[in-house]
Computed example of a mutant assay.
Amino acid sequence: MGLDTWVYTIFLIIGSYIAISVLLYFLQDYLLFKPEKLPKDFQFYYENQETEEYNIETRDGAIINGLRFKTKNPKGVVFYLKGNSKSIKGWGKFAVDFTRHGYDVVMVDYRGFGKSTGRRSQKAIKRDMQVVYNKLKEKVDEKYIILYGRSLGSGFAAKLASMNNPRMLVLDAPYYSLSKVGKRFLPFMPLSVLIKFPMPTYKWLKYVNCPIHIIHGTDDQLIPYKTSVKLSKIKRELTTLHTVIGGGHKNLNTFESYHKMLEDIVYSKRTEVDLTGSSIDVIHSSKRTNAKV
């Protein structure tokens, strides 16, 4: 192979790499988000659930549409941040997992999902979620607010918890960062430079001061279970890791153990453990000093 051929091949490889990088930069919004858009006159309906629809206008003119699933004499409210697909039309069916325990549930559609409008960006969505949270705080003391983040929503939930003081933070199938997730599938691409939604959950968790509950299935093929193990070590004194044996990324609600975990979580109270008389300070030596010959 001649020198000219080598040079041509190298430039072809470099050109292809740059072209793929440019495409990835501009198309990642379509790869990451799978929105379902709803007409403005769409009527939400959920059997045996009482709902209230609302719209919040943001400072840049976007409309954030949401629902409140209502209970009688609520014990508190769960702010449920959903995943990256569909709209609250379908996600609303999961509200019953909390209303059955006496908690109101608030769900919103991100920009471009459902009836919500506006241009999506990580900064804009974080700001939107804080606006919704502020509205909740006007009616409910923070000690009665539970933040629940599912998949994509886990990062936004962690960010909210890092800037506020909710009763607790629950992360369902969370990621370390979206940059790390992307790296699994595109290991040779410079995602740290290209990705518009890095979503560094691990950084935000460092500033969370409420109890943290992480739920993850051992058979999750999209976001590996080991991700939650790693996240659980960031604020280990505040974190409880709940493992759904055999659970995948989208089917945790089909496991009885998941619902038992939710029940334990929503009824849990933060308490100090009395370690007096325990083995916490016992040090095991590798030397068999008391072994008989």
Rank of each mutant, 00 (worst) to 15 (best):
F42Q: 03
S285Y: 12
V108Q: 08
D60S: 13
N251W: 00
M261R: 04
F79Y: 14
V208Y: 01
I88R: 01
D172P: 00
K203F: 12
Y267Q: 13
V266Y: 01
A124P: 06
L136C: 06
I18D: 10
H213M: 09
A157V: 01
S278H: 11
D219A: 12
G61T: 09
A173W: 00
R167C: 03
S268D: 05
D109Q: 07
H242I: 08
D220L: 12
I63M: 15
K233P: 05
K226H: 13
T239A: 03
K75A: 08
Y144Q: 05
G92Y: 02
K180I: 07
K135F: 06
S268Y: 10
I125F: 08
N65P: 14
L136Q: 10
M199W: 02
G277M: 12
A173I: 10
L194A: 05
K183G: 04
P211T: 09
D60A: 14
N251S: 01
Y258Q: 01
N164S: 09
K233I: 07
K70C: 11
D60Q: 10
V22L: 15
Y30I: 08
E52T: 15
G149I: 01
A124R: 03
R59G: 11
K287I: 12
K89P: 07
M168K: 12
I14L: 13
I14D: 07
P174M: 01
K123W: 07
S177P: 03
L191G: 00
S278M: 12
L3T: 02
D141L: 06
M261K: 04
S154P: 03
K82D: 08
Y225F: 11
Y175H: 14
L275S: 15
K233M: 10
I56G: 14
F11L: 15
I195K: 02
S257V: 15
I215S: 04
D172N: 00
S151N: 06
G248V: 00
S179M: 14
K115S: 09
M168G: 02
K233W: 06
M199S: 07
G155F: 04
D219Q: 10
H216C: 06
A173Q: 06
Q43S: 11
P224H: 06
K180P: 10
Y267E: 14
G155Y: 05
D220I: 11
T5Q: 15
K203G: 07
Y148N: 03
N73K: 10
K93Q: 14
I64H: 03
E138V: 07
K70S: 10
K34F: 14
